[in-house]
Simulated scan of single mutants.
Amino acid sequence: MNILLLKVTLMPTVIALVTLAIRKWGSKAGGLIGSMPWVAGPILLFFILEQGKSFGIYSIQGSMTGILALISFCVSYSAFSRNFTWFPTLLISYGLYTATALVFKYLQLNLYVSYAIVMISVVLSLQFYPLPIGPPASTRRLPFDIPIRMAVATVFVLAITALASVLGPNWSGILTPFPIMTTILAIFTHTLQGSSATITTLRGLVIGLLGFTTFLFLQAFLLNQYSVALSFGIAFVVNVLINLAASRVW
């Protein structure tokens, strides 16, 4: 199958299904669902299909840095959403995301240390996560809500995978967990349901990063031994099990 065709059909379908799932099961469950590797998994797959399996494996180290930056984005967006509208909140959060990515890129930590720091960071951030102020606002929906989300996510994925050969595996890995899904969730929830629902959704997403991070971490080992389909399948099951356990704890 043509890879470009796969990109422009797979990603919109995933975004639409996740959006519908969030509407059905609510903000916290929506965050957990959104944290699954719906975007990062296909991006890693496209890296492998276009650049080779070795490129994909080497990109995973950078992905750990990207996840640390993603945690920074979620916490900062949640905190600032209580006082600002979506646009300034997004700009501040992207700034902190970029600063975090640059700091940990400079430190050049190995995969094991990076994985441990991510897992510890998730747990610590949940202990001190910003609290919602007041109940969620009533749900509103924009016309063509789902098509807009689908289009934005597809453009992001096309851009990241197109730049892979220029950026190399490390920076490509850093951009793999770039908050594509998170940005869409944050902006639409903030605009339509208010800060409290946004904080609940993003907190659910951070909880899900325990499983998401493990999914990517396992690829560094599974892809050396098994096919892409089996590697992704094993790690996806582990991801789901971790998310189920984490949702009970938090």
Rank of each mutant, 00 (worst) to 15 (best):
W250S: 09
L241N: 02
P147C: 14
T198Q: 10
A220N: 14
A235M: 01
A40I: 06
I57H: 08
S138I: 06
L230K: 15
G95T: 07
L222V: 09
L210D: 01
L91K: 02
Q51F: 02
G62C: 05
Y58V: 00
F232D: 13
G168S: 07
G31R: 05
Q108P: 12
I43P: 02
I160G: 03
T100D: 02
V113G: 14
V228L: 14
P12F: 13
K105Y: 14
L70D: 00
L124M: 12
V75D: 09
F46C: 06
A116S: 15
A137D: 13
I43A: 07
V123N: 01
W86F: 11
M36W: 04
G233W: 14
S172D: 00
L167Q: 08
D145A: 11
A186P: 10
V118P: 15
I234F: 13
F212H: 13
P136R: 10
I187C: 06
K7F: 08
Y97F: 14
T161F: 04
M11E: 03
S35K: 04
R141H: 15
Y115P: 08
N170Q: 11
M150T: 07
V39R: 01
A16W: 14
F144Y: 13
W38Y: 02
Y226W: 15
V18C: 05
A69R: 02
C74Y: 04
A159S: 08
L5H: 07
G41I: 02
L175A: 02
W171N: 02
T154H: 08
S81H: 11
Q108S: 15
I15A: 06
I133Q: 15
L244G: 00
C74D: 09
V103R: 01
F144S: 11
I57T: 11
W250G: 04
G204S: 06
A164G: 09
L107A: 13
V123A: 11
G52V: 08
V238T: 05
F178Q: 01
L202C: 14
S121N: 14
A79M: 12
F128E: 03
L70N: 04
M150W: 05
P135I: 13
P179R: 06
I60G: 07
S172V: 00
A137H: 13
P147G: 13
L124W: 06
G95C: 08
S35Y: 03
F217V: 09
P177S: 04
N243M: 10
V113M: 15
T100H: 03
